[in-house]
Amino acid sequence: MNIATCPFPAIAITATDYAKCGSTAYCYVEPRNVVRAAKYFFEAGYFIEDVCGLDLEEGFEVVYHFDSFTAPGRVSLRLVVPHDKPVVPSIAGVFPGAEWHERETTDFFGVVFEGNPNPKPLLLPDDMTLHPLVKEQKKRQPAVNVFVVHRLSEGKEPTAAKKKPADEDEEA
C-alpha cells in the first residue's frame, strides 16, 4: 500500500517489516476518515482482528488491526485523538465485530465511539467511572519513545506526508 494509491484519505502510510513488528503497514488517518478506511478494508476482504487503545503524550492512539484470511499481512490502521476530546466515529456499521472492541476501548480508555450501536460498558461494571488503562500524566510517553518503525529497505524514520485535503470533506 502506498500513500499515492491509497483509496481513502490517509495522513501517512508506512510500510513496515512484517517479521519484526507483525504488520506490513501502519496507516495513519484522521479520526473522521476512519469509517472510509474501514470500508476500504472491508471491501478488500480483510477481517477485523482487534481495536486497541494506547495512551500517549500526544493523545489516545486508537489502533485497528486488519488481517486477511487469504493473503496474510496485517495492516494496522491508526489514529490519534486528543485527551480532552477523545471522540472517534464508530466502524461497527462496517465491521459489526468492531462493536465489542470499541466498547472495550471505551471501558479502558474513555475513548467515545460515536455511532456505536450499543454503547454500554462491556467488561467493566456499569457504575465504574475510572478508565484503568489511562496513564498518569508523568508516565505518559511521547510516540517517538515507543515506536521504532522498522521500514522495509531504508532505515529512515518515517516522515508524516500530508495528503491533499481535497476529498476530506466526505464523511461516511
Partner: peptide
Amino acid sequence: RGETYFAVEGARGKIGVWLV
C-alpha cells in the same frame, strides 16, 4: 523499545498479543 504483534493458533482461534 518498539512494538510488535505476535499471533499463534490457539484451540479457539487466533491468539494475538500486541506489545508496546
